[in-house]
Nucleic acid binder design. Structure first.
Lengths: 223, 223
DNA sequence: TAAATGTGTTACAAAGAAATGACAATCAGC
DNA sequence: GCTGATTGTCATTTCTTTGTAACACATTTA
């Protein structure tokens, strides 16, 4: 079932829309600000579509859309625009939105557009990339069609795990390869970095799925 | 077959271009002034593409382009610019062109561009250039129908990023390619030039969209 | 069960990378 | 030579990354 994120600061509008979408059978996430929206999206990379109000407190809808598109080219974005807006503004600024709906909108129209876009995404766009893989060229990680940025150290560690092709890698080997044989510091640095990678990569960093701990030995990378 | 309108006041240039385009199999319309061009276009709404000289008697090419775009977002517009023109003029005024060709131009180049734009229009349906791309012949950048002028160094860097096709390029590779392997100066010169390009290219140079920083590595070019 | 050991988690400060702005040198055209 | 654009240098600011330390939690072992 498709996940939809509604980013809208006015509680009653948001609630209204959510109830309607749930009735249509969607899984609905919500956020009252752009910042929150981006965070929610980060935690739910399998979201199909975002309903995005333009007038938001803090960063506005356009900026949110831009930010989303930086990492995800395949997600659908529908903007909610107030009728009072200058058309040039809408024209000029729209970066990355797939559709627009003017407020006040009727809910049938909204759900119709949502269904239509979801269909388009599913058929037209390539099906949502499952799996996860390291992209050497871009020095990042592709997960479900989203790019996750990695710092140099993180990338290096993940490279090592990746090259082991699912075999467990010894902690010390990681330490030696990344920090050199004569590293004077605390070997726990490996753990800390694994933790950092997990926070970026895992759905639930405390219950890791991709980077598995091999007790008394090291870590294993399962794609 | 595709209809092309040539708006150009100098008879021999116009004739020359027309002969060439007809030989390529296009249906060619002509006009010797902006006013006439708009009239012809009005009578031939199925025209695919307009070749538009900037220096015209009466209303100039920019105004013509603007007028065309008021009514038609999908037609292709290629501007013919004289080399002698002030860059600011090119900078400030151009609205809505899809491409630029500097005079004097060679006819092969012209037909190549025409074919390319026609193809784009036919396949994409929404040819109005939303993205951004490097124009090798003019050594400039086309962004949303506007030409952005680049200095030689800037152009070279952007070329390198462009050739990488969205992959991250290492700082040192840029340094080596542009300044040579034995450059004695400060490698930060790369950063400084990137910033200069960003100031020209980005909507908000401090929150770059097109030239992305890949931390600890280099830069990435997203069109 | 308690101690020992390995691992997870978080906060913080230092180091390092990149962005920025000002300035001087260079070069091209006039 | 003058003017303006281009280019490189440098100091300063801003931001990210990175290592450390302290503590919590889990697993093993005695």
């Amino acid at each position: 079932m498709e996940k939809i994120l509604v980013i809208e600061d006015e509680d009653n509008i948001r609630g209204f829309v959510i109830v309607h979408l749930k009735r249509e059978g969607f899984i609905v996430l919500e956020a009252a600000s752009g910042e929150e929206g981006l965070r929610v999206l980060d935690e739910n990379p399998d979201t199909s579509l975002v309903l995005l109000d333009i007038m938001l407190p803090g960063i506005d809808g356009f900026q949110v859309a831009e930010e989303i598109r930086k990492h995800n080219q395949t997600i659908g974005i529908i903007m909610l625009t107030a009728k009072t807006m200058e058309s040039d503004q809408v024209h000029g600024l729209n970066q990355g939105a797939d559709d627009y709906i003017g407020k006040p909108f009727n809910l049938n129209e909204l759900t119709a557009r949502v269904h239509s876009l979801v269909r388009r995404i599913r058929t037209h766009q390539f099906p949502k990339q499952t799996g996860i893989r390291l992209n050497r060229a871009e020095r990042c990680l592709i997960k479900g069609g989203n790019a996750i940025e990695l710092s140099p150290t993180e990338y290096q560690i993940l490279s090592i795990l990746d090259m082991a092709k699912g075999k467990a890698v010894n902690r010390n080997d990681i330490l030696d390869e990344v920090w050199g044989l004569d590293f004077p510091g605390d070997p726990k640095i490996v753990d800390v970095n694994i933790r950092r990678i997990r926070q970026k990569v895992e759905d639930n960093p405390s219950d890791p799925k991709y980077i598995e701990t091999v007790w008394g030995y090291g870590y294993k990378w399962r794609k």
